[in-house]
């Protein structure tokens, strides 16, 4: 399994006990989410919705590329990759 670095946004650091960066082993983003959950229970439901899809306002970047330009949740992770979880910056009207 590839060991990758995951950068955690402020909004999730309560779940990661304040850590801004964690090391996780995973072959894909989907697996990464599962393995993050094992380490930090509660994080998964913040990242994916009831249907298992990544939430509308959550963006994943692998080595600075949006996974929506790659293979989405099935995007493969290489050893040493950096995965950044970043909230979409919205703030529109009701």
């Amino acid at each position: 399994m590839a060991k990758v670095t995951v950068r955690i946004p402020t909004a999730l650091r309560r779940v990661t006990q304040g850590q801004g960066e964690v090391q996780i082993e995973a072959e894909t983003i989907a697996e990464l989410i599962e393995n993050l959950e094992k380490e930090f229970p509660g994080i998964k439901e913040r990242l994916v919705d009831e249907t298992g899809e990544i939430r509308k306002f959550v963006n994943f970047f692998v080595n600075d590329e949006d996974i929506r330009f790659l293979q989405g949740k099935e995007t493969k992770l290489e050893e040493g990759a950096v995965v950044a979880i970043i909230p979409a910056i919205a703030g529109g009207a009701k």
């Binding site: 946004p9 909004a11 913040r46 939430r55 306002f57 959550v58 909230p87 919205a90 703030g91």
Partner: peptide, 9 residues
């Protein structure tokens, strides 16, 4: 600016 629970704005 972000909801800690669902990442909504």
């Amino acid at each position: 600016h972000v909801c800690e629970f669902c990442f909504g704005p």
